[in-house]
Design a binder for these strands. Structure first.
Lengths: 139, 139
DNA sequence: ATGCACCTTCCCATCATGGTAAGGTCAACC
DNA sequence: GGTTGACCTTACCATGATGGGAAGGTGCAT
């Protein structure tokens, strides 16, 4: 199976498959006489694993760990769960940060008339005329 | 005022101040005989504006637009509000995406024993043994 | 044998930010 | 005067995950 077919089978772009090989995330693919990369069922399975992990927001380094655990028959699910819970905590941080931004902006937008006149609490807040409203008192 | 003082006054690193100048986000600073950049009150005000906009997650290009509107006495708040609402929509998309990832992972983690044994629904799900579970089915 | 789809490697771009190196400037202190 | 140390300058490289494109080789169907 050529790289294009492997790409279509897994949803990982050919570009990224080559990249994953170059950074050692996956083993170097077999080559045909033409020098074309050749993929088998196992490779496709691994790429599918990687794509699903990426879809869940795991970083390349986390995926590297997950792949090791996947291939380790003596793994304990404890390790996998820890990795997952850590990643959930990262996601929670990001979500909280974005949520704060959103709340601040939504408040400012509510206070903004949105008409033809230039008066605008959003711009005023950015200009520092007033502190951002209803934020946690910073230390 | 030298770049270091401007940096401390605004919370924008000297590195980024130079960068913003190089990409035309701010005008080229005045120079002293020493060739050191020299900043005045207006420059500091603009950098503060930029920092607050970045803290709210606006991209450089969005900030470019906001700065234009800030300096335009004939602006309508309509334009500012539109930019803001568009940005809120972007934030909502990101939050929703991260939230989906989080929910899927939380569900898998709940189903994972976390003990010494290798059986692990998280790894199995990544391996494609089973489709990702329906989250809404079981809260 | 020609065309077309596919592959190869290599370099560059993103976005916002930081690091480091090699060197210039300036004020303070001995 | 000379040294030290804090500050500044430019320039290049790195991140993480991905895409774009150039220049050229391979293989199959018409």
């Amino acid at each position: 199976m050529q790289i294009g077919a492997a790409s279509r089978a897994t949803g990982v772009s050919a570009k990224m498959i080559r990249h994953y090989e170059s950074i050692g995330l996956i083993p170097a693919a077999d080559r045909r006489d033409s020098n074309y990369r050749d993929y088998g069922a196992e490779d496709v399975h691994r790429l599918g694993f990687i794509r699903r992990a990426r879809d869940l927001g795991f970083s390349i380094d986390e995926i590297r760990d997950l792949l090791k655990l996947w291939g380790d028959r003596r793994r304990s699910s404890r390790n996998v769960k820890k990795l997952t819970l850590d990643h959930i905590a990262e996601l929670d941080s990001k979500i909280a940060l974005l949520g704060e931004m959103r709340a601040t902006l939504a408040h400012l937008a509510e206070c903004c008339d949105g008409g033809d006149r230039p008066d605008c609490p959003i711009i005023e807040s950015l200009a520092g005329a007033a502190p951002l409203p209803h934020r946690h008192h910073h230390h």
